[in-house]
């Protein structure tokens, strides 16, 4: 029983390590390739991220997306 439990724990630990490594690798690719490319395109074509455009414009904006019907409140975006 003791050995079985220890084996199960070890298996769980290695699964966690594997999962974390895969996640890191996946996020690395997304960040440096996916976001890097997006960033490069933005620079090339003079586009701006929303974060930087908001930073440069302090003005009030009309509120959007605050609809008060059930259907819009069921959406996550």
């Amino acid at each position: 029983m003791g050995i079985k439990a220890a084996l199960a724990r070890a298996a769980q630990r290695s699964a966690d390590v594997m999962r974390s490594a895969l996640l890191s690798a996946g996020l690395f690719v997304v960040y440096f390739l996916g976001m890097g490319l997006t960033r490069a395109l933005a620079v090339l074509f003079g586009g701006r991220t929303r974060a930087s455009s908001f930073r440069e414009d302090p003005a009030w904006r009309p509120a959007e997306g605050y609809d008060s019907d059930e259907e819009s409140c069921l959406r996550q975006s």
Binding site: F28, Y31, M35, G36, T49, R50, A51, S52
Partner: peptide, 15 residues
Amino acid sequence: ESHLDSWPRSFGSFR
């Protein structure tokens, strides 16, 4: 978009 804005400094935080 915030992480994109500070690419490539923000990888640690992004992860």
